[in-house]
Design a protein around this nucleic acid. Sequence first.
DNA 1: GATGAATGAGCTTTCATTCAT
DNA 2: TATGAATGAAAGCTCATTCAT
Lengths: 196, 196, 196, 196
Amino acid sequence: MLKPASSTGKRELILNAAAKVFSRHGFHRARMEDVAAEAGVGKGTIYEYFESKDSLFKELVREGLNFYSRAKLAETGKDSLGEKLRRLFLVHLKFSIDYRDLSKVALSDYATGSEDIRRWVSSMRQEKVARLKEMLDQAKERGETGRDLDTGVAAVLIWGALGSLWYQVTWEEPPPDIDGMVDQSVQMVMRGLENG
Amino acid sequence: MLKPASSTGKRELILNAAAKVFSRHGFHRARMEDVAAEAGVGKGTIYEYFESKDSLFKELVREGLNFYSRAKLAETGKDSLGEKLRRLFLVHLKFSIDYRDLSKVALSDYATGSEDIRRWVSSMRQEKVARLKEMLDQAKERGETGRDLDTGVAAVLIWGALGSLWYQVTWEEPPPDIDGMVDQSVQMVMRGLENG
Amino acid sequence: MLKPASSTGKRELILNAAAKVFSRHGFHRARMEDVAAEAGVGKGTIYEYFESKDSLFKELVREGLNFYSRAKLAETGKDSLGEKLRRLFLVHLKFSIDYRDLSKVALSDYATGSEDIRRWVSSMRQEKVARLKEMLDQAKERGETGRDLDTGVAAVLIWGALGSLWYQVTWEEPPPDIDGMVDQSVQMVMRGLENG
Amino acid sequence: MLKPASSTGKRELILNAAAKVFSRHGFHRARMEDVAAEAGVGKGTIYEYFESKDSLFKELVREGLNFYSRAKLAETGKDSLGEKLRRLFLVHLKFSIDYRDLSKVALSDYATGSEDIRRWVSSMRQEKVARLKEMLDQAKERGETGRDLDTGVAAVLIWGALGSLWYQVTWEEPPPDIDGMVDQSVQMVMRGLENG
DNA sequence: GATGAATGAGCTTTCATTCAT
DNA sequence: TATGAATGAAAGCTCATTCAT
């Protein structure tokens, strides 16, 4: 599912199964045996492809983020901030719908595994927010936002807003009209960023 | 600490200890033994006051939310939306700083615990968002927001923004100038809610 | 059995069980579950008293050696070398008969557990041989041995001879006339140490 | 290496690899995969030549002992007991140095392996000791030893002394002057065997 | 009530062995 | 013949929960 199922790669098979199981039960309740069963392989086989449970989780998230990043590459520097945000939101949410299971695992801030994983996930968040801040900084220089916008705070707020939408879409309501929702959301956000 | 230490209640003792331990290690890695040690009571004693680990967790979150709600009661219906949001943000974040441990557990740590806890935490979120929506609906009727604001989406966005600030304050940066940050944030949010 | 069963010490209970099981199957084949069963306690109980399987093994050997050492304390500095050796041999073998299981585990050079244990057992052997060499050195000074005896080599040889007797007694033949055997052995050894 | 590399036999290849790996980690910690890697063959190939891990171990030891025995054949019946022992010791220790890995496995590592292996190794020891006793008996008849030497006990003692030297040479000290050490040792032993 | 020693289900991980290629 | 991907039994260890004191 991650790759178009060209080769019967066991690795992909296991990653997909892991996405399902991890998203269903959370990291700790997920049993390696269930992942194996879901993938239709033996328990030992997982360990041929992944070092440990921790490692499997990390790989899964990394894979998800890579895939997600690839999708975002379309974004060009020339677009207006509004357009960029619209695309960011849209890609994020579309991805969450298409890869529901993976998304639950990979994009969740809540995922708490070992201390190690925890730190790793946290650093990921910080990086994302930092990147968003950069985007805002550039827009601010081009006069697309208010002169005295605190881009640091704004980045945090926007990231949270996006995360919240994502949560709604992924965990609660069955996805409604995404595009409309995104349009409205970005409009609000943009108004919030502009000068009074 | 949760209650003004009127009765030397073992219950409070345990809840405080649980807040510390759960926040340190997350739900699954936290051991009942550590909670007992932290509280200075025997392992068995915990079970005199709480049915199970799951139950202890729930009680802890419930207690936290109650306390948090109580603090919010000050909010009067007559305030402007901006003022209400400012207070919401402020109370939320102040609470997170004053009760750091409890906050880490009660307001985050989703997706952990048993299936049961999971659903329960999720329903809590929905309720909070619903209440926020109500607040927006009332403001909308009084013309404090744009005419065609989708209060449902707005509530989700705002909740996420607040959550993101909270995360920053609680987990990452050592709390800076909270009031200033809240003012800025609410300003942005309010602009976002007003008509173009 | 190690202590006269005065208190129903679980620790002793487990050590005795471990001696039995380890001696029966060797370190690796021995399962903690079997030790537990043999001791008539739950699997978890072992871990209340010992850190790990490795640790249990080490404690067992240490306990054995302590007990064995205590028995040897009788040895006085004034005795002749022959007398000392006779006592060394006798104590060693008597101990092996009385505490057959423990002896198999504790006095065996063969026990190979983890790399860690291996080194530890090896160092134990070296220490024993060193102590034997000291004894020979003193005797040499008092003229009880040949003038040009290489006490280092002699110590190794004697240690091996004793070990071999021990093996015979412990693992193979049902113990015959120990005292006679020891007398003969020490006589041979003493002759070997004297001048030509 | 075991055979003069006449045929490029996979079998020898594997045995040599097994000697290395078994001696490095001991029987249980040694993994068949490592043996395969060391031998430069596939894991499955080992099973073309050996029934099981147990079997591989046995073959290895048997091979070692055969080779060792072959080397000893030089021993003629006419030699004096002292000469015979000197040769026994020398061959034993030289072998241990030349085939360090094999030696570590074949002559030690008792008590490891399955119950089966254990008994087998033990019986090997008994046979060796018995043969040594025969040698002593013959010497006794020829008057080379004391009249009332208990050859049974003596054999055990000598075997242990030799084993101890071997241990020293193989596991602990980097081999020093072997010949000198052997001369000294045999001298001591011989004195021990002679009449008072 | 309060305790903590005792428990065993449950989990991750290893590795000898098999078998389709 | 040779291979190594796949397997699953087996084992060490954890920890929520119980219950005799």
